[in-house]
Design a protein around this nucleic acid. Sequence first.
DNA 1: AAGGGGTTTGAAATCGTTTACAATGTCCGC
DNA 2: GCGGACATTGTAAACGATTTCAAACCCCTT
Lengths: 337, 337
Amino acid sequence: MAPTNKDVARRAGVSIATVSRVVNQLPNVRPALRRRVLRAVKELNYEPSRTAQRLRVKRSHVLGVIVSDIQNPFFTSVVRGIEDTAYQHGYSLVLCNSDEDTAKEKLYIDVMRAEGVAGLIVAPTRQTNTHLRALLQQHIPVVAIDRVLHGKHLDNVMVDNVEGARQAVIHLLELGHRRIGMVSTRFISTGTERQQGYLNAFQERGLRADRRLIALGAPKPESGYACTRELLNREPRPTAIFVANNMMLVGALSAIREAGLRAPHEISIVGFDDLPWAPLLEPPLTTIAQPTYELGKCAVELALKRIASPDRAAEQVRLKTGLIVRGSTGAPKMGAA
Amino acid sequence: MAPTNKDVARRAGVSIATVSRVVNQLPNVRPALRRRVLRAVKELNYEPSRTAQRLRVKRSHVLGVIVSDIQNPFFTSVVRGIEDTAYQHGYSLVLCNSDEDTAKEKLYIDVMRAEGVAGLIVAPTRQTNTHLRALLQQHIPVVAIDRVLHGKHLDNVMVDNVEGARQAVIHLLELGHRRIGMVSTRFISTGTERQQGYLNAFQERGLRADRRLIALGAPKPESGYACTRELLNREPRPTAIFVANNMMLVGALSAIREAGLRAPHEISIVGFDDLPWAPLLEPPLTTIAQPTYELGKCAVELALKRIASPDRAAEQVRLKTGLIVRGSTGAPKMGAA
DNA sequence: AAGGGGTTTGAAATCGTTTACAATGTCCGC
DNA sequence: GCGGACATTGTAAACGATTTCAAACCCCTT
């Protein structure tokens, strides 16, 4: 149905080789012929089949992207960065949503391999790279985003989670809080690192952190709700809560509201990752901002760099976070702590 | 680098035709051979190249998706529905973000054609289908989502915007509001339809709508902010505002907050499209919910139906919206109206 | 006018599949 | 033991591009 090489050649009265030369802007084609071919191309609305191109030249100009939650604004923004950068370099995107499901992730990795992607950008569900082995064996570049993944030739882009969490907790400590609850994720490297930042902050100020105030769950609103309720039921109740995952934040806020607590007077709240609606909350949310767009952009750049030189040493990029103080944090009510 | 047909054939000591037969589960292969081939497949970790497959059989099992704003939670949720449904049917997704930019959209449509997608799902930036003509000529199914697009064999899935807007405005009218501002989009069919719903509601109740209370702009927060400010400066000020686009809502809420107005006592607010954080606002937002996931699912199903029978009459599906009453709407303060 | 360099063009091979067709093998009834 | 039906296997031709190689052509020098 779609016009091919051959159709154009016939119409222009030349061979397919000449068509290819004209389309690919190679030299040594007489201007007269070139014009005839270009006219035929236009008339037929010809676009070379990328499928055929891919089969012939081995480069594919497609990047695979597997995110763990396409509805998470964090990943959405990262994908935006990936998309912009990829298309700027002439790459298309094949997108998958693993939905935090390792089986789905494995399936999609095989899809990517069969698709012959030039590179894969993945937010891994687990910290093992076994599923990715086949890709790496075939020297298909893999870039892990947001979450750590170790491996030879396996690049990483992440934010500095330890430092980000440290900033959040230091902020609360400086306001005078001592019983600081933390809601975080289990099994995911970002969660682990942020917990480390929490502990570091206490240690840095010569204080003892209470590990029982760290509640762990899945990166889902319901889980955030459950974790927060659990923390609110502790005696004595924490005067501040650091919700270190933006999906869990939604549930956490519900739980806090349900408990009838008002920020910042009765409880202080800090989130992780800025969101378009964070300033709209009442009070506006204090949070740790992540350079999401840059993260996506950087991931593409790493992938392209590795496509260009496959044997570079694995690179790990850490992007900086920043504390944004809004209205949801304040000094603890005396007597409550 | 990746193992091929031939590698498997050599290892199993058979011809490539037999490999193909085994992999594609065709009959008439002796069990002994079948086993040998399967073993070789496993040992080499062989996956048939989709590129080569596509070139040979003309079906491609790739759906193109062009959304106008990948960061809009509405589209995110739609994409989620598309993704789930597509992969369930063995299709992969090539995703693009037109960013409400017609030039980019055109570029991506050509990309899709070159990619040889089996179908395209698009949230069109404009109401013309000229860019899509080449696709339709080649009998590549096109499904327009969210926004109307007319054309032979061109399917549509949308929500019932007229009815949705009507529900919103009737709700406000019943609360006693008469001066109801509307913030909506220009040039986009959803905006136009929702404006129609606004007018219908007034007419239905035998009231005259004041068209000067409809402020139009682009589907962006900044534009929502500007439109809302404009409305708030009217004399007398509207007692309620219906923000008929979720991107504009973010800006609208900022403007309202900035003006020092509190919902629902000083002003009532209704949004369009439910969002995960809508219940978390203070007060929680009254809004028109859209079946976003179903919309994506339905789009894929329409595409697949048209792939199966290309000459069906164009189908237009309208999904139902629903009013969700939360705290941001109430009776107008008497004397203000 | 013949030879030689450089440019322009086309024929044909190739990428990894699927698939039509031909060639073999197997099994059965006579 | 032989022919025929049927199952099994392999050979070779597509698909639509790129790319190598050689043929054809042009122009200039001798």
